[in-house]
Design a protein around this nucleic acid. Structure first.
Lengths: 186, 186, 186, 186
DNA sequence: CATGAATGAGGCTTCATTCAT
DNA sequence: TATGAATGAAGCCTCATTCAT
């Protein structure tokens, strides 16, 4: 039931936004009553925190795997781009909530998520640094800004991507990986 | 007074979010009363629409100027990247509201903004297409996706940029223009 | 278990008040679940009634003993003052609940308690009457009002007494018995 | 309107208790809507605080007057007894709320009221001390406890007094003043 | 132009109670 | 005996909006 509530909530939050979705909306979509919601969650905010935590922790785990498995930095970057974009179909709702609604967390919870978010970004930055040292990447790059640029490319996808649209996810991931590596110039 | 209200609202919307900011918050920050607000705006949503319209129309105008003035596509892209990032200091609040709060517009208003948003993106896509035809850009690129990728790099900036932080806006614009053109690979 | 529940409830009701204490609070303090509570008590109100009944019936029994044992009215009054104040340490929580929460009983239950309360007061009034007739007490006293005055002195103690404070219970009982008998004037 | 709300609230709190009275009850009794209540009061608790403050400050002022005007301690005590009981008719509701509902104040507000309550008691204690020194009162008395005893007699009245009942307020005040001074013993 | 009182709908949350297991 | 999931009513409070002045 807790999972059921989470699932429906993510869907609604994604469609209407966190503040715009009422507990009533959530329980109505499940056919239960408000009491049930509060049996499983201490507050609406805690549900949001749950969603955030689950999302970022999953991302961090899979990022770690990539870093350990892949040999060169080029492939690490490609795989991370594909990681974020790749499962957009299954987790787009989750991702949208994650990228948009952090503001609604209490300061102490926001801090926790922010720390993990920073960790993810730092890991990417580290790959850029190592890639430069290994001669894989151009040595004029500023690793921190580039990491943020790459995340812009991938995360922004969650704003416009229409999973039932005409763009194939795999195709998009390939295109973006290529774009990140080589830019647009001939 | 209307401008005063808009200015303070943008600041508050950016800090706390549209739904989380009450009319009371707005008028308190101005030292006036609610009646005054409703003398100038028909509704809270109309104020948000005003903010959106002003922002996107300004962007579109300046984009048009760039397209007309610059000779080659390479420079057009560079200038557009710098356009979005360049005035982040003066309009970050505006930009954040623009990128985050469109969901709170009424369907008919959202449609209007969406059209202009699409126009901005289409213009960029057109530049990519022309650049490819002119041999400036790689011909393996999918123009629409690349346009979205570039916008990801630039628009995402509004999420993490701290205007009082240590990253110089000019430096950032240069770095991102370079990143967009040449990617990270040697 | 029923006694255990009662004991913990009294403690919580005294600290936070009846309305402010939830069944959840009670069962949490015992490490059991709500079902258990409702196995032993029909309702929250019935628990409160139990507490009231037990308290007043004990008082009435001990008052009766005093009335039967003591020879003169002076001693009867002294002993009753000491009865109420004397076991404040062991039953302060009970007493506080008794003096404060009667309002939360259902009308029919409130009536039952009120009757017993009146009985206790009437017994005291009767002692005053007999004391006046016997020439022990001043014959200008209005027995009913004086009974209420004496109960004020004693019952009010439950409002301010801090059992772990610096006032000794015995000392207090002596002082109040003396005060009731002789007043403050020289 | 604010006064109107306060007046009706006091009446309801006295009848049903603070926790048992809903904002809805209050506004219904006035024929207005909930919004109106919250236009005048920040919270239910603040209304309670208002009631408490008004009551104790009035008492303190009138106590001060008595202390300044009356010449001997005997009369000061008599006047204070009559002060508390005297206006029971006009302020019984207020008094009941004051004596019963302090628990529902936030800790910081409770502290403020407690301080003023203590001030009132300390003033009475001071009168006892001076009375003993002046030879008006018996020197075996413990001033602090006696002050609490006297307050028991008077304050308890708010528990049982039925203003429309058969006991005359003046008569009661006389009787209790006499009781406090001379006790019950011949 | 501006105020400030009033509305009413809706939001989050708590809680006593029930009931199948 | 005891559990724990579920209910539904009710409570406090916020807020966009209206309107007489």
């Amino acid at each position: 039931m807790k999972q059921e509530i989470t699932k429906h909530s993510v869907k609604l939050f994604q469609e209407k936004g966190f503040s715009e979705t009422s507990i009533q909306d959530i329980v109505d979509s499940l056919g239960v009553t408000k009491g049930t919601f509060y049996y499983y969650f201490k507050s609406k905010e805690q549900l949001l925190m749950d969603i955030h935590l689950r999302y970022i922790e999953d991302l961090l785990n899979r990022q770690k795997e990539i870093i350990e498995k892949e040999q060169n930095c080029r492939n690490k970057v490609i795989k991370i781009v594909k990681l974020i974009i790749g499962d957009i179909k299954s987790t787009q709702a989750n991702g949208r909530v994650y990228f948009r609604e952090m503001r609604n967390l209490k300061p102490e919870n926001a801090e926790i998520i922010k720390t993990k978010r920073t960790e993810f970004r730092d890991n990417l930055e580290q790959i850029i640094i190592e890639g430069i040292e290994a001669g894989e990447f151009r040595n004029t790059l500023q690793p921190k800004l580039i990491a943020l640029g790459i995340l812009g490319v991938t995360n922004w996808t969650y704003q416009w991507m229409n999973p039932s649209g005409d763009v194939s996810v795999d195709e998009l991931a390939e295109m973006f990986a290529d774009f990140v590596l080589h830019g647009i110039h001939v």
